[in-house]
Every structure is written in C-alpha cells, then in structure tokens.
Simulated assay, not measured.
Amino acid sequence: MGSAATLFRQSALLALAMALVVVAAQVSAGSGAATWCAVSGVVALVFFLAVSWSRHRQIHRLTAEIDEVLHGGRSVGFSSCREGDVAVLTNELGKMVARLARTSELLACEKTALADALADVSHQIRTPLTAVGLMLPGIEAADDPVRRKRAVCELEALLDRIAWLVTTLLKIAKVDAGAMPLSARPVSAAAVARRAVEPLATAMDLHDVALVLDLDEDATFDGDARWTAEAVENIVKNCMEHTPPGGEVRVRVSADALVTSIVVSDTGPGIAPEDLPHVFERFYRGRASDVGEALGAGGLRTSGGFGIGLALAQALVSAQGGTLRASNADAGGARFALSFPKLVV
C-alpha cells in the first residue's frame, strides 16, 4: 500500500509538471509545439511508471524475504537480481544475512560446548570433593596420631588437586575468551625450557626419571616466556608421570630459518593410535582406567589426572601463533613438538 501510494503521488506530480509545460509551450509557440511536448511527456511518464513499478516490486520482494528471515527463514535469494542500486542493496543484505546466520551457528555451538564443559567440570570436581567428604569422618574418629596425620596429608593432596583444577580451568577460559595477557617479544627458547623444568626437579628424582636437556642457546622466537614455560612444564610433567622408573624425559630446543622448535619426548609406552586424535581434548583421559593399565597397554598417559594439562598447553601455544603436535617417537615413547614460526605468510 505504501509503495503504491508513493508511486501515485510521484505520477501525479509528474503529470502536473507536464501539463504546465504543455500550457507554456502552447502560449509561446503554438499548438504544434504543445502536441510534441504532450507526446514526449506521455512517453516519459509511461517510462517513469514502468521503471518505478519495477523498482517497487523488487523492494517489495526484498521486504518479504527479509521478513521471512526475521521469522525463521534461511536466506535472501539472488536469482532475480540484476544490475542497479536495488541489486547492490540485495547483495549487501544477503551478506548481512549470511553473517548473521554464521554468527547464530557459532553461538549455538559455543552454547553446546559451554554446557558440555560445565558438565565435565562438575563431574571432575565432584569426584575429589566426594573423597574429601568420605575422609573427614575417618579423620575425626581416628585415635592413632600417625593414622590421622596420614589421612590429613591425603586430604591436603586432594584439596591441592581441586585448587589446581580450578586454576587451570580459569586459565583455559581466559585463553578462550581472548582475555589472557600474552606478550609478543623476542624470547630465548633455551631459557623457557630451563624455566619450565626447574619446578619439576624434585619430582623427577622422586619418580626416578632422568631429565636430559639438549638446548640451542641461540634459538629465539616471538612470544610470551612465562606462559610458554607453563605450557612446556605441563607437557614435561605429563611425560614424567607416565614414564617408568629408570626412564628418561628429553627436552630439545632447536631453530632453523623458518621455525623455533621445543620437542619433549620420553621413553614411556607412547600413545595408543586410537587416542592420538584426542590427546589435547579437555578431560579426555584415554581408554585405560588406571596408571598400570595405561602403561601396560600403551594408552594415553593422562590417567591419575584430570586430562586438562595438555589442553591448557595447546591453548597457550595456539594463542601465541604456534602449534603443538603429539606423536610417537620412532624409538618408542611419546613426542610433543612445539613450533613457533619466524615468518608469517
């Protein structure tokens, strides 16, 4: 209705202008000039009406399609578009609708992922909390000081695990949200490796696992030394915990013209082929149910943990533009390779 009324008003104004032109031509030049003016005006009016009606039909179609999108339709079609300003408008509206549809899909995926993550977090935290609840009555009823002290130490260990879990999850959430303050400055890869393994020296001795450092002192990359060291520490810790006593964990730093690499490998049983695609998934702990089964069967060596240390490592490396890949070494054992490119193409 609005389009038709607008077209009627425009036509009426054009007809009035033509009548005034015809009257002026008749007064000044006679009836012949007035006739030609009238014929030309009618032709112009018909052409104007045809073009205007076509434009109003296209706009009406666009309006209907946009209304369909707003009420659950899929997209704006382009099959009937031709050259002209209306076609340009249609193309831009189509881009907008495609972008909105993509954004809607991403939001739906993120919503599902968030729900799954919350369920996983709830499950992971509930297990040690349940153990804490079961231990407290035993501690209260224990008469033997040695037994009570041992139970308190176990309780402290569980609380430390819960605190570590919560802290790690917060770090992963910050990385996902882009809120993690990561610097990008020249960093010595050898210094990062030393900083990563330093907190694990005592644990290495307790596990009877040797640590071998093969460092290129000249290797550098642009990144954040603190967070890269934490990523490497998580990987080294994972290798240490699942390497048999008497084994070895090796950290090698090297560089070439294209990338700087930090490779962590061990002499453990390696990673089962079916578990390799899932190594960096959060809360994925392989098919083995305990450490002994994992070592014996060669499964993913995250048993006894929460399965988020490697996920955090990958998130920290990826946020700096690097890559982290897991594989099995030719001589046996797991191999984790961090690569930081020197050139971005």
Score class of each variant (00 low, 15 high):
99 R>S: 12
143 D>E: 15
255 A>D: 09
5 A>L: 09
74 R>C: 04
73 G>N: 02
143 D>I: 11
162 I>V: 12
242 H>D: 08
30 G>L: 04
37 C>Y: 03
107 L>P: 00
75 S>V: 12
274 E>A: 14
223 G>Y: 06
315 A>I: 01
240 M>L: 15
51 V>I: 10
270 G>T: 02
3 S>I: 00
214 D>V: 08
34 A>F: 11
59 I>K: 08
73 G>F: 07
102 R>H: 12
294 A>D: 11
256 D>F: 09
325 R>P: 07
199 P>E: 08
60 H>Q: 11
130 T>F: 14
64 A>E: 14
313 A>V: 01
197 V>P: 09
81 C>S: 15
124 Q>G: 04
146 V>W: 09
45 L>R: 01
231 A>S: 10
324 L>Y: 03
317 V>A: 05
315 A>T: 00
28 S>E: 04
68 E>N: 07
52 S>C: 06
16 L>C: 06
31 S>H: 07
295 L>C: 01
229 A>R: 06
311 A>H: 13
270 G>L: 03
335 R>L: 15
163 A>C: 13
5 A>P: 00
342 K>V: 00
166 V>A: 12
292 G>M: 04
52 S>P: 03
137 P>S: 10
78 F>C: 11
229 A>C: 08
114 L>P: 00
89 L>I: 05
158 L>V: 04
164 W>V: 02
300 L>A: 07
162 I>G: 02
12 A>L: 13
142 A>E: 14
138 G>P: 00
114 L>V: 01
259 V>D: 15
187 V>A: 03
222 D>S: 13
324 L>D: 02
341 P>E: 15
313 A>L: 09
321 G>A: 08
26 Q>R: 06
296 G>W: 10
268 G>V: 01
77 G>H: 04
7 L>V: 13
116 D>R: 14
281 E>G: 10
315 A>P: 05
172 I>R: 14
62 L>C: 12
210 A>V: 02
66 I>R: 10
14 L>I: 01
81 C>H: 07
112 T>L: 15
52 S>K: 06
41 G>N: 04
85 D>M: 05
329 A>Y: 10
119 A>K: 06
185 R>F: 10
252 R>Y: 03
1 M>G: 14
70 L>S: 07
192 V>T: 13
324 L>A: 04
322 G>F: 05
282 R>I: 08
236 V>Y: 12
